[in-house]
């Protein structure tokens, strides 16, 4: 086999494997199996091919061939649009919506993972071209491990303390500790909340976390994840049982109230802790001089 063919095959193979490895179909079951998975594997294969042929093309002094990497950029942007549109379309049929921030985050991740595939296949094919297949495969695996590390974002449990809260009514107003959640008129609703409702308080660990939790999209993502994991005791006509997160503006603490189907507090805390911090809500006011000196 010629060197070029070996280079391309190694690059494509490792790139596609890395796309498969990056596809984490956990409890979210997203991308859905089998069709969305096949779509993304196919797109991963395309990305891997683009990355793998770049080195042999350069070696053959076909410098213009590299311009089709720009094609890859267009292609991947398309992936992002596709994901966004699909999730937004499905949003209407969800009992607790994901919210636009979460959707944007997911769409962005899908786009970025294709670039990461290009990186893996490019690394593998470069090392294969320079040395041989075995070092190429090793380089590909190292690149995959790097990518996996790089991909990992923070979780709510990393930036905040999550503890059980006390759910109580003052007149018609529902509170979690000292955080006002909403006004609920009906006594029947109060009874359901008092009996089955669970409350959680999310305390930001620092000012960065306070701003993360202030983001409405981040809070919607928490509500969605928790409802997806523990179930929510509501249907389309009982809007009052939608999980809600409200913020105490003085302390930055966020109160979550939900009427889960599974009223297990430990699991609820676990579910909240494992919600990803959204890229769009992630801010670092402490990294600035003004933000830092404003802390007390």
């Amino acid at each position: 086999m010629t060197r070029e063919i070996l280079t391309i095959v190694t690059g494509v193979f490792l790139g596609t494997i890395s796309r498969f490895w990056m596809m984490r179909r956990d409890f979210r079951q997203y991308p859905s199996y089998p069709h969305a998975v096949v779509t993304h594997l196919a797109l991963g294969f395309v990305a891997a091919t683009l990355g793998a042929v770049a080195i042999p093309a350069l070696a053959a002094k076909e410098y213009t061939a590299v311009t089709f990497l720009t094609l890859a950029a267009t292609q991947f942007r398309e992936v992002r649009t596709m994901e966004r549109e699909m999730l937004l379309a499905l949003e209407k049929s969800a009992l607790v919506s994901r919210g636009p921030d979460y959707i944007e985050g997911i769409a962005r991740t899908f786009e970025a993972r294709n670039y990461l595939v290009v990186f893996v296949s490019l690394t593998a094919s470069l090392v294969t071209y320079l040395f041989s297949v075995v070092p190429g495969i090793i380089a590909g695996i190292v690149a995959m491990a790097l990518v996996r590390r790089f991909m990992q974002g923070k979780l709510i449990g990393d930036v905040a303390r999550v503890r059980p809260g006390k759910l109580h009514f003052e007149g018609a107003n529902l509170f979690v500790d000292d955080i006002h959640i909403m006004n609920l008129g009906l006594k029947e609703t109060h009874k359901v909340y008092e009996e089955y409702g669970r409350a959680v308080v999310i305390e930001p660990l620092d000012d960065n976390a306070r701003e993360i939790l202030a983001n409405v999209g981040q809070r919607q993502a928490i509500a969605h994840e928790v409802a997806a994991l523990l179930g929510v005791r509501r249907d389309v006509d009982t809007a009052e049982f939608t999980p809600l997160l409200r913020r105490n503006v003085k302390t930055g603490r966020v109160g979550l109230v939900i009427v889960p189907i599974e009223p297990d507090m430990e699991c609820l805390l676990e579910a909240v802790k494992n919600v990803p911090v959204l890229e769009s809500s992630f801010v670092k006011p402490l990294a600035s001089k003004a933000g830092y000196c404003a802390t007390d």
Partner: peptide, 17 residues
């Protein structure tokens, strides 16, 4: 209360006091 319950269910809305 009864009317509020019916209205909130029919309109998929929330009754506030």
């Amino acid at each position: 209360v009864e009317i509020s319950v019916i209205l909130s269910r029919v309109l998929e809305a929330v009754a506030h006091d």
